[in-house]
Amino acid sequence: MKTKIINTKKVSFFCCLFILFCFNHKLHSQIIYTDIPDATPNASYSLDLNNDTIIDFIFGFGGSGSSIGVFCNPLNNNAYAGNFVNGTYFPWALPASNTICASLTTWYDYNTPGTMGLGASIGYWPGETNKYLALRLIVGAHTYYGWARLDFLEMSGSFTIKDYAYQSTPNACIQAGQSNLSSNENMGQSVFSVYPNPFNSSATIQTSSNYKNVSLTIYNYNGQIVKQKTNYSGKTFSLFRENLPNGAYFISLSEENKIIGIEKILISD
C-alpha cells in the first residue's frame, strides 16, 4: 500500500468560493490518495479511508442464490451518497469527474446501510466497472469528502475495490477519481453539461455520448425528487423549468438505472 499527499490548485469555481468563504486561511487543498492491490474479498472488506487504523466503512455480502447482494455499511457518523427508492437505500455508482462534497444532495449514515447491488437488476452497481462511491468522513469536529473505486460482477456475487482517496481539507470538494493534479486533468470533462446555468425558463443538456432511454431526475437540497422525465435519447436534451421555484438543485441522468452523471443547476428569475 502506498499513500501520497498531493497539493492541488484546481477546483471548480463553486468549490473555490465555498472553501475561501469557510477556510480563507487555506491556500491549497490536499488529496490523500491510497493505491492498493486490487482486493476481491470473499466475505467483507473494511475500508479505512484516511488510514488512521480506524475502520470507516464495511462492504459485505448478503442474501443467497440469484439474490446475492453487496451492501455498504458506514461506521460511526460516516456516510455514502445515494438515493432512497421504494424503501431501499441505493449508493450511487458515479462516473469519473463528478464533484463530491456537501452539495451532493443526499448522504446516508450508519442508520441506513446501502444496497450497492442485489442480483443483476437492483441497485446502481451490478456489472459496473471503474465507478466511484462518494464517501463522507467525520473525524472529530471535521468533515471530509472522498471516493472509493470499485468493479462489480453483473450478478453482484463479487466486487473488487481498487483504490480510494479523500480531500484532507475539511469541507473541501473532491472529484470522483481525482488523485493528483495531473491525473485529474486527464480524466476529461464531465459527462454532461447544462447551459445556460443559471437559467430562467429553459436550458439545454449536452452529453458527451449518445444515450438511449435516458431518465432525468431533479432533486432539491433536501434530497427530495421535484421533477422526473423519461425517454430522452441522443446527445442533447431540453430542460424546462415549469413550476420549479428559484433555487439550487441537482440533476441526475441515468440510462437503464445506471447513473450517467450528476450536476448542480441554479434557477433564477
Rank of each mutant, 00 (worst) to 15 (best):
N243F: 07
C15P: 03
A141T: 13
H142D: 15
A39Y: 12
A120C: 10
F14T: 13
Y108M: 06
I19G: 10
S29R: 09
L239D: 05
N184E: 09
F21I: 11
L266H: 10
S97L: 04
S193W: 01
F192A: 07
Q167Y: 08
S268H: 14
N197R: 00
P37S: 11
F21M: 08
G62L: 10
T88D: 05
D56A: 03
L244V: 10
S201C: 05
F84I: 03
L239V: 09
G87N: 12
L118D: 07
H28R: 08
N222D: 06
K235M: 15
L133G: 04
L239S: 07
L150N: 05
I260P: 12
N24V: 00
L47Q: 12
F57I: 00
T160P: 12
N200Y: 04
C15E: 10
R136L: 09
L244D: 12
H25A: 07
R241F: 06
H28T: 10
P113Q: 10
F152Y: 08
Q175N: 14
G177Y: 11
I267Y: 02
F61R: 12
Q167S: 09
H142Y: 12
D269M: 10
M116L: 13
I31R: 12
Y195S: 15
I32L: 15
T207D: 04
G188E: 02
F152W: 04
L27V: 09
C16T: 13
C173K: 02
S97Q: 14
T40M: 13
I6L: 10
F18E: 09
